[in-house]
Simulated assay, not measured.
Amino acid sequence: MQLKLIASAAMAIAASTASVWANAGEEVNIYSYRQAYLLEPLLEAFTEETGIETNVVFARSGLAERLEREGQNSPADLVMTVDISRINELVERGLTQPLQNDVLEQNIPAHLRHPDGKWFALTTRGRMIYASVDRVEEGEISTYEDLADPKWEGRICTRSGKHPYNIALFSSMIAHHGEQEAEQWLAGLKNNLARKPQGGDRDQIKAIAEGVCDVSLGNSYYYGNMLEDENQREAAEAVRIVFPNADDRGTHINISGIALTNSAPNQENAIRLMEFLSQEKAQQIYAEANTEYPANPNVQPSGLVASWGEMHADSLPLQTIADNREAAVKMVDRVDYDN
Rank of each mutant, 00 (worst) to 15 (best):
A10C: 07
S16Y: 13
V91S: 04
Q284H: 14
T261H: 04
Q267L: 10
I129L: 15
N191K: 13
V56G: 00
A259D: 12
H163R: 12
Q204E: 11
T54G: 04
V133R: 15
D229M: 13
R325P: 03
Q204H: 09
M128Q: 09
E280Y: 12
E26V: 10
Q284C: 10
V56H: 01
E53Q: 08
A10L: 05
L122Q: 05
Q267F: 01
N245T: 15
A7Q: 14
T251L: 03
N192P: 01
M331V: 03
N269C: 06
W21T: 04
A110H: 04
S315F: 01
S8G: 07
I205N: 05
N324K: 15
E145G: 06
Q319T: 15
P294H: 13
R202K: 10
D314K: 04
F46E: 02
Q72T: 09
K151D: 12
I321H: 02
Q100G: 11
E27S: 14
E105Y: 02
Q267W: 02
G303T: 06
M1N: 14
R155T: 00
L193V: 12
V335K: 02
A246C: 01
M80Y: 10
C157F: 04
E268Q: 04
N324V: 08
W119R: 06
H114Q: 06
M80Q: 12
V20R: 08
H177I: 09
A328L: 12
N339I: 01
S220R: 04
F120P: 00
L260W: 09
S315M: 05
Y33I: 08
D338W: 09
A121N: 11
H111T: 08
G161L: 08
E228Q: 13
E179A: 09
I129Q: 12
W152S: 01
T124H: 04
N101Y: 06
Y130E: 07
M11A: 13
A15K: 15
Q204F: 10
D314W: 00
E105P: 01
I129G: 06
A76V: 08
Q300R: 12
I87L: 14
E230C: 01
V305I: 13
N219L: 12
D214T: 12
L67Q: 02
L277Q: 00
K190C: 02
V20Q: 05
M1S: 14
I253H: 13
R113Q: 11
I108H: 00
E210D: 11
I205E: 08
W185T: 00
Q279D: 11
V335E: 08
L38S: 05
